[in-house]
Design a protein around this nucleic acid. Structure first.
Lengths: 254, 254
DNA sequence: CGCGATTTTGAGAGCCGTCAAGATACGTGG
DNA sequence: CCACGTATCTTGACGGCTCTCAAAATCGCG
């Protein structure tokens, strides 16, 4: 039914954990002094993985809890015959491995799309975090709830929307997320993946995904080339993505 | 593209909160004395809603955090033109409203399939729960992670499986869950919903869902009639549900 | 400049959707 | 206990959105 891909396993290269790019961004909340101190001890260190690396592997024994510091990746599930469903894309600030930490089993894989910097945590100390820093614990739950929200959205798309609606609503969502993370500007974003990834996320075939993109380009709605998305007619894009949230508003600035 | 349904709003009828059926079941973990004490104060009370009642409504302002004590329901999203995607079915022990409690917005609705008993919580005290009972906080996060796991599974199904695979894997999953909750026996379960619900959960049309069920019946795999599922050939069912977990094993008993 | 990965395009087929109409089940009232 | 109306389930006919197979065109890179 669809393509496959053999995951490559890649060793983590541990480095120091000094300049967390996330703490510099004002898109993320600040820690209190105690929280910051705890988080330092909670960390194992920073890992850097190359594009294409497998970060989590379905069925693998041990795996870690980590936050994405930079780069893009995606979570996915594979069927025995090679069909693949991308569950969602991950960007800086996203947490990976919570499911497996809590449920003791990992039922999905994750792969890096670009080089990624990851902040690894000591999963066995998660209970300590819950014990000593309820504020951080609530943050973890908040992230899980947000993840669930995105999955709800994707499931609705894949289950009930047409190909054109799916493509437009996913691209809109990605633009919005990237925009909030400061990765988009002027109705343009770099989307570091292929049309095959898009197809696997949308539950469509590569060929049909391509045709849909071509049509959207011909209709003057958007343009996708060289891994870069250019939104040409924002109103038309929102209109085509039935029931999706609209374009992000430029936020105030002093 | 698909059917619609206008949600009816229903007032909760508050009653006392004495005999939680969940605490009697050994499928759920026991509370410590302090936890139990806290949970009592955390509760608002028990609500009983009739079948068909809307429990959560997308876009509604205030809404509550609650645990299902008994009965079946489902979470869903609607598109403006009436298409509906069922996100997952909820059974006793499931938590509802965490997303909206944390994210301050509700992006899905929920409806009762049978009469349901719900345990309502004071959402504004969730931070207190995190503060005073890290063990319970971890439980909440565990539930969120489990929910994410189910969504991952459903998304893969809807995105990459054929109609026959979708039907069989969902029915298998429901049988497994119901079985664990003590609601199934002897390869039979009562599934208190219509084929339309099944279709909306699978991202299929009602007609095609029906044809697929008929085929499975003709093939001697299972039988669905009068809201009751009978698994006739367990091995064939597991085989048809590509990549799904198998039938639950009978657990030891003294 | 040459090769592999990715993107496009064409052709044909099929799974699944829509429309429609019966058949069956179920609850209510007579 | 039967009549009747509504909800649900079945089945047929037909169409189309999307898939698969295939091959050509581009792109990226050493």
């Amino acid at each position: 039914m669809n393509q496959q891909e053999t995951p490559r396993r890649t060793a983590f290269s541990l480095t120091s954990c000094d300049d967390c790019p996330l703490r510099k961004s004002d898109a993320f909340r600040k820690f209190t002094a105690e929280e910051f101190d705890f988080v330092r001890r909670f960390k194992i260190g920073e890992a850097r993985v190359p594009a294409g690396a497998t970060i989590l592997l379905e069925g693998a024994p041990a795996d870690s809890l980590m936050t994405v510091l930079s780069g893009w990746g995606f979570r996915y599930k594979s069927l025995p015959d090679g069909r693949r469903q991308i569950l969602n894309f991950v960007m800086p600030g996203d947490l990976l491995g919570l499911q497996s930490t809590l449920l003791r089993e990992i039922h999905h894989s994750a792969e890096a799309l670009t080089e990624m910097r990851l902040c690894l945590f000591r999963r066995e100390r998660l209970w300590l975090l819950y014990h000593e820093h309820p504020g951080l614990a609530l943050d973890v739950t908040w992230l899980a709830a947000r993840q669930e929200l995105m999955l709800d959205e994707n499931l609705t798309s894949v289950g009930r929307r047409s190909a054109r609606e799916r493509v437009t609503s996913l691209l809109l969502q990605l633009y919005n997320r990237a925009s909030r993370a400061g990765l988009a500007q002027d109705h343009e974003v770099d989307l570091p993946f292929t049309q095959q990834h898009l197809a696997d996320a949308l539950g469509l075939s590569l060929v049909h995904t391509n045709r849909t993109l071509m049509k959207l380009s011909k209709d003057g709605v958007l343009r996708w080339s060289n891994g870069r998305l250019k939104i040409i007619d924002p109103a038309a894009l929102v209109g085509a993505a039935t029931g999706s949230s609209s374009m992000p508003q430029p936020r105030p600035f002093l």
